[in-house]
């Protein structure tokens, strides 16, 4: 694959400073990181260390104060809101701690949502959505509304939704934060499977080591800086 030469994400000296009146919070103090296609990494760190801020910038939901960001080889540091929206709709998938599903809309329609904004025709939307629901193992829940589902099922709907545009990168911010241990393990196993079987590039943000250990690479944040970035020893032997 010629694309394999181009990293999905390459950031250099990335900084994000929030100013609230007199106060300045340095959420990211100069971060360098490269994510290659097919990687599965977790971003670890205590609360307030800048993980979410980092994910939002990588996910083109926010812009850095300074530093450079190349997404799939293209400069993404200074895009207009519409340009960022277009990349989100075509190349990025999001999974949130609180699922963020439309509660009175059927699961399959929730899964279809990103394709609506990517301009994919109706029948194709339905076909792709059902296909992705099959992959995450909830095809039988297609017609159910999210408010009739367990947390684990809802998060699977959200994961199916993140897959529909065949994104170059899936970003998950504390995806297991609202789940019990067993369900949490199931969800992380699903991510592993997506990475192994489909070669999806995945970045999971978490503050729990047990969750982070599912990834092949663990990046640790502290006070807005990366303090360690290493392969997951547990998995290296296995892989």
């Amino acid at each position: 694959m010629s694309e394999s030469a181009v990293p999905v994400v390459r950031v250099e000296r990335l900084r994000k400073i929030y100013t609230m009146g007199e106060d300045r919070v340095i959420a990211l103090g100069g971060v360098d990181l490269t994510i290659e296609p097919g990687e599965f990494l977790s971003v670890m760190g205590p609360s307030g260390s800048g993980k979410s801020t980092f994910m939002q910038i990588i996910g083109l939901l926010d812009q850095p104060t300074d530093g450079t960001y190349y997404f799939e080889g293209k400069d993404a540091s200074n895009l207009t809101p519409d340009e960022r929206a277009d990349i989100r709709s075509r190349r990025l998938g999001f999974v949130f701690q609180s699922y963020n599903l439309l509660s009175r809309t059927s699961a399959v329609e929730n899964v279809e949502l990103p394709m609506l904004y990517a301009g994919i025709p109706e029948e194709e939307r339905r076909r792709i959505a059902l296909e992705k629901m099959e992959i995450v193992g909830i095809a039988q829940l297609a017609k159910h509304a999210p408010n009739q589902m367990s947390g684990g099922q809802q998060q699977r709907v959200a994961i199916a939704r993140s897959l529909v545009n065949n994104p170059g990168l899936i970003l998950a911010d504390e995806p297991t934060g609202a789940l019990d241990t067993k369900t949490s393990n199931d969800v992380m196993r699903l991510f592993k499977q997506l990475n192994n079987d489909l070669g999806m590039t995945i970045m999971v943000v978490t503050h729990e080591l047990d969750v982070a250990k599912n990834a092949r690479r663990i990046v640790s944040f502290r006070d807005g800086l990366i303090v360690s970035d290493k392969p997951n020893e547990q998995l290296v032997g296995v892989a």
Binding site: D82, R88, F94, N100, P114, R161
Partner: peptide
């Protein structure tokens, strides 16, 4: 939140 979600998955503000 719904609006936020729609934007996150690619809806332009227009």
């Amino acid at each position: 939140r719904e609006i936020g979600l729609r934007m996150a998955v690619g809806a332009r503000s227009g």
